[in-house]
Design a protein around this nucleic acid. Sequence first.
DNA 1: CTGAAAGCGCTTACAG
DNA 2: CTGAAAGCGCTTACAG
Lengths: 329, 329
Amino acid sequence: MSVTIYDVAREAGVSMATVSRVLNGTAVVKDETKRKVLDAIQALGYRPNAVARGLASKKTKTIGIIVPDVSAPFVAEMVRGMEDIATMYAYQIILSNSDAQTEREIDLMGTMWEKQVDGVLFMGDRLTADLLKAFEEAQLPVVLCATVDPEGRIPSVNIDSEQAAYDATKFLTQKDCKNILLLSGPSDHPVIGEPRQKGYLKAVKEAGLQARILECSDLRYEHGLDLLQRELTSNPQPDGIIAVSDELGVASIHACLDAGLAVPDQVRVIAFDNTRLAIMVRPELTTISQPIYDMGAVAMRFMTKLIHDEPVEEFSVILPHDMTVRKST
Amino acid sequence: MSVTIYDVAREAGVSMATVSRVLNGTAVVKDETKRKVLDAIQALGYRPNAVARGLASKKTKTIGIIVPDVSAPFVAEMVRGMEDIATMYAYQIILSNSDAQTEREIDLMGTMWEKQVDGVLFMGDRLTADLLKAFEEAQLPVVLCATVDPEGRIPSVNIDSEQAAYDATKFLTQKDCKNILLLSGPSDHPVIGEPRQKGYLKAVKEAGLQARILECSDLRYEHGLDLLQRELTSNPQPDGIIAVSDELGVASIHACLDAGLAVPDQVRVIAFDNTRLAIMVRPELTTISQPIYDMGAVAMRFMTKLIHDEPVEEFSVILPHDMTVRKST
DNA sequence: CTGAAAGCGCTTACAG
DNA sequence: CTGAAAGCGCTTACAG
């Protein structure tokens, strides 16, 4: 069997309670006693069993993370941000993929409760009533990340998608684009759909231009390429394209090139996310950079504050976005 | 307080032991009793506390995963494969990033022990003696994923990197390339270095050609582009390039285009991994596709077998690789 | 500053 | 087929 706190206590000639105290620093222990305990720990190679500790203290130092899919680069980077901060605060993470299925998300909240995590960082598409109920029933602090609660009931960390779309559009109108196409997500999507369209529409209207929106049911390269290739053959040529992800941005560039349109001379292309993909295409993509890693990091830091009852300044944190101008515009 | 197994027992008019039995199916329970218990569970909305269960049973149904960096697409996809299989077997995963630092890896093995995970899936660069000791001391089953133990002491799931590099090289020699450049990882790297170079050298030698290896200290696009741009100005022009990752493959194509070399007419480019990146470049990349997701999935399945003492056919699993031929060759 | 004891919520022999 | 009881390895009031 492995060595327990009881073995350490005996070796050091003190009680388990005292060992626990030096381990956790929960009370003052005489220096000499502390040394004896530390020596015993060293000598026996003792490591505390976090499961037993979790049961006794009702804190597991574990945070649950529910995301649609870690294998999406955006998500993976966010998770990395979360994990780094978790490590900093000596937390571990339990990671789960939901494929953005509400049913699965609800199920996972149950699992997170069973595992007695201290909190859940959640990224998803839409927040249904059932899901909100599951949040409540789990009786766990939940922080949304890159996910919007339209009614602001759950704390969250996001960027201002509407403003970002406005900025992107404005950038093109100022470059004198007259026919700007928005390659958007579904109009009812709370992050890559509705707010992006809203910001776009606002800027387009201000410039006195006609709106032109193409909705992608998913944000994959192939899908965007296909959609756009058809659009470019059958419609008047746009002179500006805003794509709501880098993948779609690369698709836009390639669709233009395939159609014999020069980027940026005939069509200016701007995208979102500023993932590494943005520099791996010719011409390199101008993108709205979202602080993806930071969103994850800030969300996790937020969680540690909630857990430790530290005061939080804002309930809905909005991180600033940025624009990185490259060759495609 | 939340409802416990004790509450369920009382509600159903049975003992805790019986509730536990129907929960876990560890013993036969009379149908009628079972129904009473199930009803009570339903009525009270009971969920078992996995932490308590873990302490009592010494099994946490949790697998630790240690990877260099989830935000790397290759890794993220592998982790997804792991998680999917974990879900299938009702396991959760604790994910940690090591940045491939031995010290951190050792530290994490300790954390994994503290968390009492049932096993650890490990991906890293080199296996040092200290790390192997940490594996041993943790007394946990460990399965390596996309990571080689040269002495085969630890079970692992990999592809045959040497054969893959040989295949890629052979493909180019058969296309009549005479000056084939290998854009490789560090020669002492057990996956993207040494075996790749070995396979390459074998094929090059068979074709009676001269070897030409360029080592990248890291596999990032920028780094490869920079290295290659310099190589192309100062050296005789290669007519074939083998890049050990898709990122480097894209860098190769761009470096050629920048130098005014047509791909594939003047230079044929072949890469590794077949990530989504491979289709997001013009011309699209021919790549050796590694079953990344599958590697993760198989490693996790392997782990469940180890945990449940199921027989395993192979200690070192080699998954078949494949070649996807596209426009770049 | 330290110890004895109860308790966290389960599982698991042991009896019957 | 079922129950009583011990035990998993800790933490946490409670005393002193």
